[in-house]
């Protein structure tokens, strides 16, 4: 199962990098959905070959929330707002990719410093930290509200990996509470995007600048 686990982790990093280089919002939403599906494998891969009920329930709810519900909400928000692509991000796509690689390095360095003894795969903590940093960068560097939500989701996916890798027996209720919070968060953000769009006729966050000082 080590190989399967490493495969999932490496694919997560690759989706991050492709995301940083994509301008079409549909593609971005699908990439984040793919991350959600990959995350659903993690709790199963960790308890393999035993199939615990708690792990299976967590995997199923992750798949349902991150793999199915989020893309639906976001595509709906994108359609309502008639926003197809991120026109001019604050940081261009090629520099973004370089930053993404830098984040991977930073995540590895930070994980090395922390030296939390992780039994499963030495990749887990570095990947988690780099996803958190990439998500943060994505939130800051993009202009469309939908893109910011996507960045927030990548960040949350990072904390999900970190939670699973650090705590061998996280209380199931905690993981579920967290998932519920993110679920509601995305819904609330979706409603906010809908209202902003109705009020402003656009969802460009850089034009939300009337409040200053």
């Amino acid at each position: 199962m080590r190989h399967a686990l490493d495969f999932v982790l490496v694919t997560l990093v690759l989706t991050d990098l492709v995301l940083l280089g994509s301008s079409r919002l549909t593609a971005c939403i699908r990439l984040v959905a793919a991350q959600g599906v990959l995350l659903a494998f993690l709790p199963l891969a960790l308890t393999w070959p035993e199939l615990e009920v708690a792990a299976m329930a967590l995997a199923a709810s992750t798949l349902l929330v991150k793999g199915v519900a989020f893309p639906l909400v976001l595509e709906r928000a994108m359609r309502d707002a008639r926003a197809r692509r991120e026109i001019e991000p604050f940081v261009g796509y090629t520099p973004s990719l370089l930053v993404g690689l830098g984040m991977l390095g930073a995540g590895t360095w930070l994980a090395d410093r922390l030296s939390a003894d992780v039994v499963r795969s030495p990749l887990m903590v570095p990947v988690a930290l780099s996803m958190i940093l990439t998500g943060l960068f994505f939130v800051i560097s993009r202009k469309k509200a939908v893109s910011q939500v996507l960045g927030y989701l990548v960040l949350e996916n990072g904390t999900y990996v970190l939670g699973i890798s650090l705590l061998s027996e996280t209380p199931f209720l905690v993981e579920l509470g967290m998932l519920l919070d993110v679920f509601v968060a995305v819904f609330v953000m979706g409603i906010a995007i809908f209202q902003i769009n109705r009020e402003f006729d656009h969802i460009d966050v850089d034009q939300l600048d009337s409040l200053k000082g």
Binding site: Q148, Y152, M189, A192, Q195, I196, E199, V205, L211
Partner: peptide, 14 residues
Amino acid sequence: TTSASLEATWKYLM
């Protein structure tokens, strides 16, 4: 619901 209050809501949320 005004444009200013929605702007504030979005910043707060994010």
